[in-house]
Computed example of a mutant assay.
Amino acid sequence: MIRPRVLPRPRKVQKVPFVELYAGRLQGVVSSGSDEERVYVSYFEAGTGNFYCSTNNNRPCGGLRGSPCKHLVELLNEGVLQYGPARVIAYLGLQQAEPDKVRAGGELLRFIKGGPHKVEAGMVFSRFLTYLQYVSVAPTGVPLPDMAWFVR
């Protein structure tokens, strides 16, 4: 049995409701600080260090001016909290970072050498909506066809 990591503090799911290591990226959805109806889709790409942040409607983040914006920093912080510094560092290919010395994800920014690189937000946002669909499923003893791939 795989035991979940004990987090040093609870995740800020209201601020960063979705974070994952997937498709060669640390990616997720970050809530807007100024508009509760708006969310941003953000990512850091493994290997290249490229990053991007836009609304779920593909409008670029106003804080993205050649360097990571506050949404990207929040994503990195919650990613390190969720997965641990060693796993995020290894996944993103930040060999020069020392996992034992990382207390927050924002400390990894100095090792990320990429720049802004636009990708469509649809894939990440779609994964988030699917995640929300399963979070809202009421507990049941009846098999769910969509989740039949889970091993008991």
Rank of each mutant, 00 (worst) to 15 (best):
R5T: 10
V30I: 08
K118W: 11
R5G: 05
L72G: 08
V80H: 08
A90W: 03
P17M: 04
Q27F: 00
V80L: 13
F51A: 02
I112G: 06
G63V: 14
N77V: 00
P116N: 10
V41W: 10
P85K: 03
K113V: 00
V151Q: 08
P68Y: 07
Y134P: 01
L26T: 05
Q95A: 09
L75R: 03
S126H: 09
P10Q: 11
L81N: 09
F125R: 05
R127W: 06
G63N: 13
R59E: 11
R87V: 14
F51W: 13
V73M: 06
V137I: 11
G114K: 07
V135F: 02
R103A: 14
A138H: 07
V6M: 04
M123T: 10
H71Q: 08
F44V: 08
L144F: 07
G106A: 02
R9Q: 13
E98N: 15
E20I: 03
P17R: 10
S32E: 05
P143I: 11
P116S: 15
M1Q: 06
A86R: 15
L21M: 14
F44K: 07
A97P: 01
L72C: 14
G122Q: 08
V6E: 08
I112N: 11
T55V: 05
L75Q: 02
S54N: 05
G79D: 05
F111N: 04
R65E: 12
I112V: 15
T55F: 09
F111M: 04
P139R: 04
C61Y: 15
Q27N: 04
A121L: 03
G114Y: 09
L94A: 04
S67A: 14
H117A: 12
N58L: 00
V16E: 05
S31Y: 06
D35A: 13
A86T: 08
L64P: 01
V124E: 02
R25V: 00
G105H: 06
E74L: 12
G79F: 06
G62Q: 10
V151W: 00
I112P: 11
V135Y: 00
N58P: 04
C61D: 15
S34E: 14
L76Y: 06
I112T: 09
V80R: 09
G33C: 07
T48Q: 13
V102D: 08
Q95G: 00
A148G: 12
G63R: 02
P99H: 08
V29G: 08
V73L: 04
G106V: 09
R5Q: 10
E45L: 02
Q95I: 02
F128M: 08
D35E: 13
E37H: 13
G33N: 14
R103Y: 02
A23H: 01
A148P: 00
M147Y: 00
V124F: 03
E107K: 03
G33Q: 11
H71D: 08
S34R: 13
E37G: 04
S136I: 03
S67F: 14
V124C: 09
K101L: 14
P139W: 03
G47P: 01
G122W: 06
Q14G: 13
N57C: 01
G141I: 01
S31F: 05
P139M: 01
V151C: 01
V39A: 10
P139H: 09
L92F: 08
L129M: 15
N57S: 03
K118R: 14
